[in-house]
Design a binder for these strands. Structure first.
Lengths: 212, 212
DNA sequence: TGTTTAGATGAAGAAAGCTTCAGGTTAGGA
DNA sequence: TCCTAACCTGAAGCTTTCTTCATCTAAACA
């Protein structure tokens, strides 16, 4: 273990030729694969390189250290999720809050469930300090998006919209986690989704009712 | 790094004299302290021993390896939480579901907020594979307790009680996490609690309404 | 075709932290 | 008081994995 005390985490070199772009892709891909197969504890840079079909040296040409590699993989995954949720937020503008909440819940669960194992593996990575920053930033972005969505609601909502967004988000996230960490995510998926919809609709109703 | 491939994780020796009991206590205490101060990444067995005022050797007399130490600390913490929640479950028997849900939410949040930093630090530990088993077991126990509580409700609940318990639990956990991971847990505490109450009451209502 | 730049390689260096163990100290009973 | 068992000590060994770098190959370019 020879981690430097403070190493930058920007990529060391940016791929310009097709050859290197492929290498970087393979490395990132291998990282996720190994996260799934052996877990973050046993994932080593050498292993990743081997699975990617390149040498360790190549890996270190594009990722300054192991941490940066994991972060890159996480960033990629998070990006996809955020994009998906954002899409729904846009699509639901102007709809009744109850429907918004429902759509949000369904969309969020659906994205995560597209590849539960991957979501879970990358989630584990995020618990390493720097990973949290990445997910935190993503969550913040999504929250803003939700606030924007709520602002477009036809109903009058007296509850602070940021608060409401936070609650919706954390509630959904709670159920999502439960689902991902259960032994059989796909089996429980539908039932849990149905219940989650009940939860968020109930809350949305409460937020509207309060304003009377 | 010289972790053995497969080491048992039972304590190596059980303290019998007061002297050693104190040592074990100090070690566990120091572990949590360091988790708070330096984080799990920089926590080393030598550091723990130093802070506890004993030598590393002593530490290894009672904990077969670092992992076991962290697990022990986590177990202790989880035990307290579970006990607290169980207490509430017992106290709420026979009450209306809405009130049950509310009490559960409030209690859960309150326990975790007694020492938010500690909760957070130990939560980080649990994300290491073996830690998950511990929290999972605790969660399972609590879930059973909740199911028992729900069974005592005066209302007729057609929703599967295990499912309902799961949903309540994950919803509450979601908000709890959001709270613990926010920068200012105490500042947000009251507001979030109020909202969470709305959420769970709404859900409880929905579960009752369904049965009509 | 010659030159330059991008890309790839992998053995070896280095650091770091876990864990052991041989030997010393303290407590309690006979 | 003496003996035994419990307890404590901490320097040193051991492993492991990260990371580097001197060297080689392939591509682009003139």
């Amino acid at each position: 273990m020879a981690q430097r005390t403070a190493t930058r985490s920007e990529p060391r070199k940016t791929p310009v030729q097709a050859r290197s772009t492929a290498s970087v892709g393979a490395i990132l891909e291998a990282t996720v694969q190994l996260l799934l197969r052996v877990g973050k504890e046993k994932l080593t840079t050498t292993l990743v390189a081997k699975r990617a079909g390149v040498s360790v040296g190549t890996l270190y040409q594009y990722f300054p250290n192991k941490s940066a590699l994991l972060q890159a993989a996480l960033r990629l995954h998070v990006k996809e999720i955020v994009a998906e949720v954002d899409k729904v937020c846009v699509a639901q503008r102007g709809q009744p809050v109850e429907q918004m909440a429902e759509a949000l819940a369904v969309a969020f669960l659906a994205v995560k469930m597209r590849d539960p194992r991957k979501s879970r593996a990358l989630y584990a990575v995020s618990s390493d300090v720097d990973g949290m920053k990445i997910t935190a930033a993503a969550e913040a972005r999504v929250k803003q998006e939700i606030v924007g969505l709520l602002e477009s609601a036809p109903e009058l909502l007296t509850t602070d919209l940021v608060l409401m967004a936070t609650v919706l988000q954390s509630t959904i996230a709670g159920v999502k986690r439960q689902l991902l960490e259960s032994d059989m995510p796909e089996a429980q998926f539908e039932v849990m989704q149905r219940e989650l919809v009940l939860v968020v609709r109930g809350y949305a109703q409460a937020c509207v009712a309060q304003s009377r």
